[in-house]
Every structure is written in structure tokens, then in C-alpha cells.
């Protein structure tokens, strides 16, 4: 019985939240990866694109709620998502057309691109905060829990409850669906293969008659879809706060690099590595160990490796360790 309690406790506080967070990071890192593969630069504005897409989704959600449209037990934001995605695509293509294309034609260095993306980041952050304000907004509605802790306890008779939020299930399902779509697109469609060809060998792709402007546009569209989805899922799971996205940039970059920069599979893997490390290292194991330990023995202290305050720092510590041990990432990617 104690053993089962320990497992449930672990699932409730580590496995489920970490998997959800990992899915959000993976989607964000995929967006960074797509842009890195095609335009070959680290896009500092990606997290603000997430924020932008999530904000538009939120606006549409409010509109739908005001006219009384709901998605039943699911959050209304899911219905609003297409609007957010379209808005993010419009934003991404606008930056491509007005900002990045110029440097692309000049074949500017990746560092120039990165600095320019900082400018884009400023503009997007300003626009978002101007439109929605810096405050915190609740995105989720509908049925909050799929399984409530109390119900779980009653059903199983265990001391520990397992609560699964609707948003957590949606996040994981959406991430799987999106990753599946992305791989289907990249490996099964003509445009997707052309994208891979372009990223593999740009000159040869041009010789083969692949139109670079089209490829770049598709890359931005994919990045915008991924950004809106990850931003919205994060907002649903926690809440929407414009300032948070700047902080998310680091774990997302870390996920993309740790997994192997430029590798889609690596981005997903990296997202989960970062998420699990963050949660595992900041979880207090005291209760967990108490259940497993024989008799009434109780450990002293919280048995927490790192204070939760350092959650965001962990992603970076992992990044440093990977840089030192295996600079190309877990799955060998092109060195950034």
C-alpha cells in the first residue's frame, strides 16, 4: 500500500507536471529548430512570438465567451486557437518580409540575424504588452480536472490523490499530434522534403529549382504554428503572463541545444530532458521516501536537491554540462 502511495505521489507531483511542461518546451524548441535549420540563426524573438500567438488566442477566447460559445468540458481557447495561429503566421511573415528578407539576400552572418531578432523581440514584446497589459490573465475554462485528487482517493482507497488537469491531457495530446504532423510534413510531403533539402545543402537545393523564399515562408509558418500552440498550452496549463515568455526563452534554447541543435527529434528529447530535470531536481522527496522507507522512519529535511527558486537555472546548468561533455547535443546536430 505504501509503495502504491509513493508511486501515486510521484506521478502527481513529478511525472504528470514534468511531462506537461516537457511537451510545452518541446513544441517551443521545435520552433527554434525549424528556424535554425532553414535560416541558420538563433531566434531570440521566438518566445515573444509564442506570447503574441497566445495573446491573440486569448482575445478570441474572450470574444467567444462573450457571445456564449463554449467547447463544453474543453477550454474555449481550443476553439480560438486557429485565430491565434493565423495572427502569429501573419506576424511571422511580416517580420520575414520587412526585416529578415533583407539580410537573407545579403547572406548576412548568423550573428547579425540574432541581433536583428533581438530588435524583433523588443517590438513584439512591446506590442503584446501594449495590447493586453503586463498583468496576469486566466486562459483556462471548462472542466478543470479530468480526475480530481479526492475522487481518485475515493476510487482507489489510497492516501495519496492523483489529480489530472484537463489542460495537462490536452497539452500532451496536442504536442503528440503536432509533432506527428511536423514529421509527416517533413518526411512525407514534397514541400517538407524540399525544406529538408534546403537545410541540408542550400546551393544544391537552388540548383534543383527549389524556391528559397517559399521554403523560408513555410519555415516561418511552421514556427508560428508551433509557437502559438506551445504558448497557448503553457497559458492554459499555468496562466498567461507576458513577462513569463522572456523567462521561457532560456529553457527552450537549452532544449533545442541539449537535444542536438537542428534536429527535430533532438528538440523533443531536449524538451523532456530539461523538464524532467527541473522537476526531479527541485522536488522534495521527503514524503516519497517516508512511504518507501521501512517502519516509521522519517528522513530529516526536505530531501530536495535544489530549491525551486532555481528551476530556471537548472536548464542552463544542463546546457553547460552538455556543452562540456558533448557539444553537439544528445543527437548529433550541427554545431551552432
Amino acid at each position: 500500500m505504501d509503495f502504491l502511495n509513493a508511486i501515486v505521489l510521484f506521478c502527481n507531483f513529478v511525472l504528470v507536471p514534468a511531462t506537461t511542461y516537457g511537451a510545452q518546451l518541446a513544441l517551443g524548441a521545435l520552433g527554434i529548430t525549424v528556424i535554425y535549420r532553414i535560416l541558420r540563426f538563433a531566434n531570440f524573438a521566438h518566445s515573444e512570438l509564442m506570447s503574441w500567438g497566445a495573446m491573440l488566442t486569448l482575445f478570441m477566447t474572450w470574444y467567444l465567451q462573450s457571445v456564449g460559445i463554449h467547447a463544453g468540458p474543453l477550454p474555449t481557447a481550443l476553439l480560438a486557437l486557429p485565430v491565434g495561429i493565423l495572427g502569429a503566421i501573419a506576424m511571422a511573415l511580416t517580420t520575414e518580409r520587412t526585416v529578415y528578407r533583407f539580410y537573407r539576400k545579403q547572406r548576412a552572418s548568423s550573428i547579425t540575424f540574432a541581433i536583428v531578432s533581438v530588435g524583433v523581440m523588443f517590438v513584439m514584446a512591446g506590442l503584446t504588452r501594449f495590447m493586453i497589459g503586463p498583468g496576469e490573465q486566466v486562459m483556462a475554462d471548462g472542466q478543470r480536472f479530468l480526475i480530481k485528487a479526492v475522487e481518485f482517493k475515493r476510487m482507489t482507497g489510497l492516501d495519496e490523490g492523483l489529480a489530472i488537469k484537463t489542460t495537462q491531457v490536452i497539452t500532451i495530446a496536442a504536442a503528440i499530434a503536432m509533432a506527428g504532423f511536423l514529421f509527416w510534413f517533413l518526411y512525407r510531403t514534397r514541400s517538407g522534403k524540399a525544406m529538408r533539402a534546403f537545410s541540408d545543402n542550400e546551393d544544391l537545393a537552388l540548383l534543383s529549382g527549389i524556391n528559397p523564399d517559399r521554403i523560408v515562408a513555410i519555415a516561418w509558418i511552421l514556427a508560428a504554428i508551433l509557437a502559438t500552440l506551445s504558448g497557448t498550452l503553457y497559458g492554459l496549463d499555468k496562466s498567461y503572463k507576458p513577462f513569463v515568455f522572456m523567462q521561457l526563452l532560456l529553457p527552450i534554447f537549452a532544449s533545442a541545444i541539449v537535444g542536438g541543435i537542428g534536429q527535430p527529434v533532438g528538440a523533443i528529447l531536449g524538451g523532456f530532458v530539461i523538464a524532467y530535470s527541473e522537476v526531479l531536481l527541485t522536488y522534495a522527496y521527503r514524503k516519497f521516501v517516508t512511504y518507501l522507507a521501512p517502519g516509521d522512519w522519517k528522513p530529516e529535511g526536505l530531501l530536495q536537491l535544489l530549491s525551486t527558486d532555481y528551476k530556471f537555472a537548472i536548464s542552463f546548468i544542463i546546457l553547460v554540462i552538455v556543452l562540456l561533455i558533448r557539444p553537439t547535443g544528445i543527437i548529433r546536430g550541427k554545431l551552432l
Binding site: R190, K193, A194, R196, A197, D200, N201, A205
Partner: peptide, 13 residues
């Protein structure tokens, strides 16, 4: 060639 693509995909491209 496109190194990370299969032979067949290279031909398709």
C-alpha cells in the same frame, strides 16, 4: 548530395 536525406529522396529532389 543532400547528406541527411535518403538516396531516393535525393533523386526526388
Amino acid at each position: 548530395v543532400f547528406p541527411s536525406m535518403s538516396v531516393e529522396e535525393n533523386l526526388e529532389m
